[in-house]
Design a protein around this nucleic acid. Structure first.
Length: 381
DNA sequence: AACACCGGGGTCTGCCATTCTC
DNA sequence: GAGAATGGCAGACCCCGGTGTT
């Protein structure tokens, strides 16, 4: 099936491409193609030359959105030597469709400057983490930049080793590369800085297992390594200051789901925290209540003010006491829609939250429905 | 059987600014 | 000095189920 899709497309590319260009492109397989660049006849490297017309035509034939490509990386279109045919061939051999290839080039034109050897090598490195080619193709379709932005394969290899050395197993590396592929294109030095920041943070808070701490934060917040250290530091400082957290409290906050809040933009974190404070104050809670809430369930800081306020309003109007919410904050993870539906269904059968508690609200859909059915049945008896 | 506690898991790029390299 | 490489930012949740206890 896949082969049937690939072959006609390849023939199509081959037919439609300029043979002179193809010959030039063969030089890409040689180590010093910059010599080709500087020796090109009449090449004026100091001026922004015109676009390479046959390249642009080639790309258009391949279905590339040239306007988008030009907007994103105009310099690529001026290059004399590129490897779009080789790239298309390569990606299609891995199972990418023609339109996927076109989309990849449109969104990250520099991808066509990578040589065959480079592509093979990089792919092999990714395959050391992924089980199949199609998994990688999916990521490339999603985010071409993650794969192509860096041409430094040695750095990628070092990253894999470095991340592995942190105690992240193959399963976690897989999740990391799937979810935040950019991490692997960071310089290994940048990743190291974030890891060291986390470890130092752990030690400064009196924790005794900095390596495990850093690993735990990364597993819980797969985006942490693509956040700047400036931001992480600012967020830690902000939380500590605003909530008057002790070292121990901060450590336990971060050990829980708190890892996620480290990645928020600091403005966002400020806004959300002040919103929670204000809203809960209006529901006659003390600041200490908010502090407890956040330590036990930091994800409330991830919920946007409007959203969180809606959830709280629904719950309170639906007969849930704010104290119950503070004790079981997990219900705030659920969507407003879900909360509304559940409240309405429970209201219909006269469910009494005062008497029966609110655990029923934060169970999974399956469990909730099963419970509801039982309750309905017992009422009908 | 029913419940409560608790951890895990999916998802998340595309653009701009700055620095590096030739 | 152009293009390549790299760093950083904005935006802003929801849900499932294993396991131990009653």
């Amino acid at each position: 099936m896949m082969a049937m899709l690939c072959i006609p497309a390849l023939l199509y590319f081959a037919r439609s491409s300029n043979t002179a260009l193809l010959k030039q492109r063969d030089f890409l397989l040689l180590p010093h193609f910059t010599q080709v660049l500087s020796s090109r006849p009449g090449g004026k490297r100091l001026n922004k030359g015109p676009e390479n017309k046959s390249l642009v035509e080639n790309l258009a034939t391949m279905g590339v959105d040239v306007v988008m490509a030009r907007r994103r990386q105009p310099g690529v279109l001026r290059k004399a030597v590129t490897n779009e045919i080789g790239l298309a061939h390569f990606l299609q051999s891995k199972g990418a469709s023609r339109s996927a290839v076109a989309g990849i080039i449109s969104r990250f034109p520099r991808s066509i400057t990578r040589t065959e050897a480079h592509l093979e090598e990089r792919w092999a490195l990714w395959r050391s983490i992924f089980r199949t080619d199609s998994e990688i193709v999916k990521i490339l379709e999603r985010s071409p930049e993650s794969f192509f932005r860096s041409s430094d394969n040695a750095n990628l290899e070092k990253n894999i080793l470095f991340l592995g050395s942190l105690g992240l197993g193959s399963r976690e590396l897989h999740r990391l590369l799937t979810t935040a592929p950019r991490t692997f294109s960071n310089s290994v030095e940048l990743n190291r800085q974030v890891v060291e920041l986390l470890q130092d943070l752990c030690v400064s808070l009196g924790g005794d297992k900095p390596e495990q701490f850093a690993k735990a934060i990364i597993s819980k917040n797969l985006y942490i390594l693509i956040r700047s250290t400036t931001r992480i530091k600012a967020n830690v400082a902000f939380l500590r200051k605003e909530l008057h957290l002790s070292d121990g409290e901060l450590l336990s906050l971060l050990h829980g789901h708190g890892a996620d809040v480290l990645g928020l933009s600091t403005e966002h974190l400020k806004r959300n925290l002040s919103s929670v404070l204000e809203k809960l104050k209006s529901l006659s809670c003390q600041k200490s209540d908010v502090k407890k809430l956040i330590i036990s369930h930091a994800p409330v800081l991830l919920v946007s003010p409007n959203n969180l306020n809606s959830k709280l309003d629904c719950l309170v109007e639906g007969g849930v006491h704010i104290r119950q919410i503070l004790e079981k904050p997990k219900i705030l993870d659920f969507s407003v829609e879900n909360i509304k539906t559940r409240l309405a269904e429970l209201n219909e059968i006269g469910y009494d939250f005062k008497k029966n508690g609110i655990s029923i609200l934060d169970s999974s859909r399956k469990r909730f429905e099963a419970k509801l059915e039982r309750l309905t049945a017992s009422i009908e008896e």
